[in-house]
Amino acid sequence: MSNVTTGPLAAGLRSMLDVSARETNSAWGNPWVMGWIGLILVVLAVNATMIVLAFVTNPGLVNEDYYERGRNIERTLTTRRAEAPGWTMSLDTPADVAKERATTVRFHVVDAVGQPVRPERVTYYAYRPSDPSADFSQPMVEEAPGRYAVKVRFALAGLWDTLVAAETDGQEVIFDQRIGVASR
């Protein structure tokens, strides 16, 4: 072997290729071994990060008393039906709703005989099923009896669960609608 360059890189290269060197040195000094161990550590670190993120960003959509609620579902449904005021509601989200575009959403409500209802408080909620940090809520403003409006802006395109809660005398009536928000 003639004309081999010197220097640290060349030395490393030589030790990688040189079998006799590997036999005498400790395996820890071998860059291949170090490389593989490094790779495994990276994979493990990514896994750990994912697991931590999964716990930290859990939307927590589960109720504390889910077990009791499950057992009481029948009673809950019956009372809800009995208490339901027989309102007719509609939630109007314009079909061209798109990400980052101000959109006016309207809520209409009439009672069982078709007369407008004027709840004390009407609130608009938007839930992002996959990312609770994007959720928001805004109060709706009365434009006319039984007609409420709010100007909203969805930060992300895709599916949203929207919901209007109308509150009168501490009782809350809920109307929901799943919508798709266009990307532009």
Partner: peptide, 18 residues
């Protein structure tokens, strides 16, 4: 959208009372 949708709905689909 500016003048009519508030009552008649964004697509003219109507609303309770309209």
């Amino acid at each position: 959208g500016d003048y009519c949708a508030a009552c008649h709905g964004s697509g003219g689909q109507g609303n309770p009372g309209y």
